[in-house]
Design a protein around this nucleic acid. Structure first.
Length: 279
DNA sequence: CCGTCCTCCTGGCCGC
DNA sequence: TGCGGCCAGGAGGACG
């Protein structure tokens, strides 16, 4: 659920709330939070709650950062807690919640940071340095951070036979775009989600990237899309869902031309497009 | 290397 | 109301 704008909203909240605070305790109620998972037979990381607590208790949060859809709690002494919320993860500041998978408590503070996650896909990983994290190592550039090689991104897109919707979701190419914002960006760029990357023209890549930035910034301005599970760090819903052009509107009229919006399945992911505005 | 498919979970919703 | 089937915003491994 949480994509770049939602994770960035949480990051800003947490940076304000946690910076300078010292971790007093860790409650891990679901140890899979620390172990992750893989296909059957895959070796799980074995991290006991006690070993994890020993690493993090007593450290002070220096800053809360974001890489793509990952959150990083950077600490003093040097270390980093890497958190991915996946589909339904929430980080909510307040009184301890019974449904939390894990909780962080803080020195001189009655409120805790609750980590709730209905579908249990999310994950916490502790490292002495972020370069140890294999997920972060794979990430491509963040579309909202200026100065990266957009020409290489465009060239990579145009070299690929995959569907452009899938290419936007590929975190190695670009970090932070998920299904909702990919769907929206393709509408604004006038490109069908099923088009192959190699069929996107040179003149379309610039507007496509501009559309990606536009929808991400719009999502951020309205504090994220809360269809169901997403909440900010204070447990409040975002309002960006009310401003989406196509996502979730299959069968409804296109706001631009009035045509009935169509649904499609691209590499297993549901998306929506306007058959008249998008080619 | 590349693209596609499948899986890790739970709950909400729809249709019968 | 009850129940089965389907769907969901992510990511990474298996496979051809």
């Amino acid at each position: 659920m949480p994509e770049l704008p939602e994770v960035e909203t949480i990051r800003r909240d947490l940076d304000t709330l946690l910076r300078g605070k010292t971790i007093a305790g860790v409650d891990v109620l679901d140890r899979r939070t620390l172990e992750g998972f893989g296909p059957q037979g895959a070796v799980r990381r074995r991290v006991s709650p006690a070993a994890f607590a020993e690493k993090v208790v007593g450290r002070t949060v220096r800053a809360v950062e974001r890489r793509g859809k990952y959150l990083l709690l950077r600490t003093d002494p040097e270390g980093v807690l890497v958190i991915h919320l996946r589909m339904t993860g929430q980080l909510i500041w307040g009184p301890p919640r019974p449904d939390a998978r894990a909780r962080l408590s803080w020195t001189g503070e009655s409120a805790v940071l609750n980590y709730c996650d209905t579908r249990r896909f999310g994950e916490w990983r502790w490292w002495a340095h972020e370069r140890e994290d294999p997920g972060l190592a794979r990430l491509g550039p963040d579309p909202l951070v200026p100065g990266w090689d957009t020409a290489a991104w465009a060239a990579g897109l145009r070299r690929s036979k995959g569907r452009v919707h899938s290419l936007l979701l590929d975190q190695r190419r670009l970090a932070g775009v998920g299904n909702i914002y990919a769907t929206e960006a393709l509408f604004h760029a006038g490109i069908r989600p099923t088009r192959r990357g190699c069929r996107v023209s040179v003149s379309e890549t610039g507007p496509l990237l501009a559309a990606v930035r536009r929808v991400l910034e719009e999502g951020l301005r309205y504090r994220g899309v809360s269809f169901r599970d997403y909440r900010d760090a204070r447990g409040e819903r975002g309002e960006a869902q009310d401003r989406l052009a196509v996502y979730g509107r299959q069968g409804a009229p296109c706001r631009r031309c009035g045509a009935v919006l169509a649904g499609a399945k691209v590499a297993g992911r549901g998306t929506v497009y306007c058959p008249r505005c998008q080619r």
